Amino acid sequence: MTVQDIRSFNRFYTNVIGALDYGRHLYAPYTLTESRVLYELAHSPHTDAADLRGELSLDSGYLSRILSKFEQDGLIERTPSERDPRRRRITLTQRGRETAAVLDARSRESVGALLATVPADDRPRLAEAMHTVRTLLSSRRPAPSARRHREDVVLREPVPGDLGWIVQRNAALYAAEYGWNTDYEGLVARIVADFAEDHDPHLERVWIAELAGRPVGGVMCVRDDAPGTARLRLLLVEPDARGLGIGDRLVEAVVGFARDGGYRDLVLWTNDVLTAAGRVYRRHGFSLVAEKPHRSFGADLVGQDWRLDLHVSPG
């Protein structure tokens, strides 16, 4: 393989995905780079300019101009960083989130249309070839730091197959780590089926955490029976992805969504053996309001009810 081979492939690929075809208005009214910055902001809640520069390898002056444009358009807000007061935390406004969602939907539609031209029998071969390219080129790069690993995690909406993944991974992980039987799998399956069959997308949502192209976590926010109350359900992080702050990001996403949706309270039910999850809930302001022993899933457990008052300002 020569340098020319790679350059030729790059020209072919950018043409196929329409990255340079501004006539299609894929990113309008923003450029491809501006759209990528919006995407990072939509999927990284704790982001500042230095993080974005490192993640996207952008010139600081160029990035500053992009962020100033976003601020003028009402897409972002800049506040002092909690980690370092010398930095400015960048967050999307409601308008910014809506804009990012529109651009993301256009991109998904464009890629979906492209994939539709590939025969179903050829798609596994295409996926394997793309995986090979990514693996071979990534293996020649310096090992990323823990911070970079954390930023590689993307929170996204579920695609076909993800809801089934939630059921399967919940069942397998809790059986392996706590010895729970198939009663728990049945419970998770009913929760997921209820969501799939009937949910209000403005008030209920599922998030999938993705790392290196595979799901590594998930969580749900659904309406509770009590008026004005949302319920957090099925928080899960794969063992090999723990320690990257994924649980915190998933819970933070639920809290923000519930607060923006006008809920007064956010509740959840869990068991005392899930100590790591309990620490995550406490960090986000939840209070343990009740405990009750029970026998479920083939084990003696202590159920816990947690509650967060969404009218109380965070921090």
Rank of each mutant, 00 (worst) to 15 (best):
123 R>C: 14
217 G>D: 05
282 R>S: 02
288 L>K: 10
41 L>V: 04
122 D>V: 11
142 P>Q: 11
94 Q>H: 08
211 L>A: 13
314 P>L: 04
242 R>K: 11
60 S>W: 04
28 A>V: 04
295 R>G: 11
151 E>W: 13
145 S>P: 08
175 A>I: 04
60 S>E: 12
290 A>Y: 08
250 L>F: 14
248 D>K: 04
79 T>P: 02
147 R>W: 13
200 D>K: 10
109 E>R: 11
309 D>E: 01
24 R>S: 14
58 L>Q: 02
274 L>T: 06
194 D>P: 01
141 R>A: 15
17 I>L: 09
257 F>H: 04
123 R>Y: 14
76 I>N: 00
68 S>W: 12
285 G>I: 02
79 T>S: 13
3 V>C: 05
152 D>Y: 05
107 S>F: 02
230 A>Q: 00
165 W>P: 04
296 S>W: 10
137 L>E: 14
138 S>G: 13
48 D>E: 11
278 G>H: 07
68 S>H: 14
151 E>R: 15
23 G>E: 14
33 T>Y: 01
91 T>L: 01
27 Y>W: 07
166 I>D: 06
166 I>N: 06
4 Q>V: 15
138 S>K: 12
60 S>P: 08
256 G>A: 12
249 R>M: 08
213 G>V: 11
256 G>I: 06
1 M>L: 07
21 D>T: 09
214 R>F: 06
134 R>I: 15
181 N>Q: 08
77 E>Q: 04
34 E>L: 06
32 L>T: 04
299 A>E: 15
24 R>L: 13
190 R>Y: 06
270 T>S: 15
138 S>C: 09
76 I>W: 01
200 D>Q: 12
265 D>F: 03
202 H>I: 00
105 A>S: 04
277 A>H: 09
119 P>A: 12
152 D>H: 12
285 G>N: 03
291 E>M: 11
260 D>T: 00
295 R>L: 07
304 Q>A: 05
231 R>H: 13
32 L>M: 05
19 A>M: 15
273 V>K: 06
149 H>Q: 15
260 D>L: 00
268 L>V: 03
23 G>M: 03
20 L>G: 14
213 G>I: 11
